[in-house]
Nucleic acid binder design. Structure first.
Length: 479
RNA sequence: CGGGGCGUAGCGCAGCCUGGUAGCGCACCUGCCUUGGGCGCAGGGGGUCGUAGGUUCAAAUCCUAUCGCCCCGACCA
């Protein structure tokens, strides 16, 4: 059986091993940079989709679907947008055996084509706000890919909304950022730093971008979700005008926001260990698996009967496979991140007990069968909380302050970070200016965001320009 | 696109230097035996050695060309 590379040895190899051994996905092989999401991985995505979609609906959004192909000219209508995405576009030039008069691009994101349709649908302030979400695949020709974290094609949702005022649009932008942060923390048990992107790092075509940033076990940052205040940029590019209450014409104020299957990569790198996948109970397709154990034929019937009864009570999957031994079943479910595994053998049938094992801590408890349902429920709840607490502590322990550019650079230097597992979130005072971002990039780090909540010491002088800024920004190396 | 590595059974690899019957581990199939952390034993199936050309009596092995994949970097959710 193939071993999982320990995190301490090679974090990137560990990540690949966990994904493969957890049977979540595999490289598509015949399609460059793409992956096949296998049932075990897709089930996690479905649970995550449900959690997100429920919240989108609860905040007034409706789902819709727009075409995969976008006329090439659409991309060019917003200057920054085309500049930002051009390098990574795949273009359809031939269809039906004929050269197309105007090529289509395969959507890298859908602001442009949605903008086009918004222009047709919106005429009055009464049509606003328009709150649309799309679940879709998009394609970006990335130079380097990693399963879930960055693939050529990926699955995501993209919210697109139009509002009558900038205030409304900004409120929406921040509301959805909050939704993302809430799902990340309460569902994925993945703490995040919520904040505003610098001007250098914002989405191509946005006025301002906001993000949630998570810290992986090696200390690298992962941008886990983004929400954009698009201002009137796309409104003007696509002529999305409406008549105000006062009878004047104005362009709509738009937002867009998205999270992707990348979240699954973040989930893996937040909780999993050297034995394989660890899933927070809320995102575990199988929360409880019961492994029956028996020797003799007469034991078999007794054990399976008891197992079926208990499984029904606690909602467990019984692993009845004849071809595998209990030992191999334990490894099997461990690698797949099942939060709780129950062991039931002749000893337990005789004593009326059952063995309950937690995936994250590896601890085994023996409890009376009469209490197993309550015990499982409690264990799942505790595990969800513990995973979050552990990740929160890691984020806290690896967030440090720095008061000079030299200090930032030395903390993030190659000797201690990246594959070595010593990555940090470095908090420093830095003016939001692309020139300053460029200086940070010199040592392969970036400003992740300017936190919405200042948990540190308030205003200070920019470590590069000496100008007064109102809080520290988060600097880190990132995926 | 720059640097490095690799293409041999489903997967992971050895064989290549020094040309001569296609090999190992895992997985798979059959039977027996086992089952509280990856059971064991016996038998079995499966490969135009990435592709194309060349050298040779003979090529996985030597030569030439070509295609593809992976890793590191630049780009990025």
């Amino acid at each position: 059986m193939k071993k999982i590379t320990p995190r301490s040895e090679d974090f990137a190899a560990w990540y690949q091993d966990v994904v493969l051994q957890g049977d979540m996905a595999e490289p598509a092989e015949v399609v460059k940079g793409c992956m096949v999401i296998k049932p075990n991985g897709y089930a996690i995505w479905e649970l995550l989709q449900r959690e997100l979609d429920d919240r989108f609906k609860a905040t007034g959004h409706e789902n819709a679907y727009f075409p995969l192909l976008i006329p090439q000219s659409f991309l060019k209508k917003e200057a920054e947008h085309v500049e930002g995405f051009s390098p990574e576009l795949a273009v359809v030039t031939i269809a039906g055996g004929k050269q197309l008069e105007e090529p289509y691009v395969i959507r890298p994101t859908s602001e442009t084509i949605i903008g086009h349709f918004f222009a047709r649908w919106i005429h009055s302030y009464r049509d606003l706000p328009l709150l649309i979400n799309q679940w879709a695949n998009v394609l970006r020709w990335e130079l380097r890919t990693r399963m879930f974290l960055r693939t050529t094609e990926f699955l995501w949702q993209e919210g697109h909304t139009a509002h009558a005022t900038h205030e409304d649009a900004l409120e929406e932008t921040l509301r959805m950022l909050d939704v993302y942060a809430e799902v990340a923390e309460n569902v994925m048990a993945m703490p995040v730093v919520k904040g505003m992107k610098t001007l250098a790092e914002k989405f191509a075509g946005a006025v301002r971008s906001y993000s949630i940033e998570a810290m992986m076990q090696n200390g690298l940052a992962l941008q886990a979700g983004t929400s954009h205040d698009l201002g009137q940029n796309f409104g003007k590019a696509f002529d999305v005008q409406f008549q105000t209450k006062e009878g004047k014409l104005d362009f709509v104020w738009q937002t867009s926001w998205g999270v992707s299957t990348r979240l699954i990569g973040g989930l893996v790198m937040t909780h999993s260990d050297d034995k394989g996948l660890v899933l927070p109970p809320k995102l575990a397709p199988k929360k409880v698996v019961l492994v029956p154990i028996f020797r003799k034929e007469e034991e078999r019937a007794l054990v399976l009967e008891a197992a079926a009864k208990i499984a029904k009570e606690v909602g467990a999957h019984v692993d009845v496979r004849e071809s595998e031994t209990p030992g191999s079943k334990f490894f099997h479910w461990e690698q797949r991140g099942v939060p709780v595994v129950l062991e039931l053998g002749p000893r337990d049938v005789a004593s009326g007990n059952i063995v309950i094992k937690r995936r994250d801590t590896g601890t085994k408890d023996i409890v009376p069968q009469s209490e197993v349902a309550a015990k499982v429920k409690a264990t799942l709840e505790i595990m969800q909380k513990d995973l979050y607490a552990k990740a929160r502590q890691r984020l806290k322990d690896n967030t440090v302050l720095a008061n000079s550019i030299e200090e930032v650079e030395s903390i993030l230097s190659d000797e201690v970070t990246a594959e070595k597992g010593g990555g940090k979130f470095v908090m420093a005072h830095l003016k939001d200016d692309p020139k300053n971002d460029a200086r940070i990039k010199e040592f392969k780090a970036s400003v992740r965001n300017i936190p919405a909540v200042d948990e540190f010491d308030g205003p200070g002088k920019c470590i590069l320009t000496g100008e007064q800024v109102d809080r520290r920004v988060c600097i880190a190396k990132a995926y």
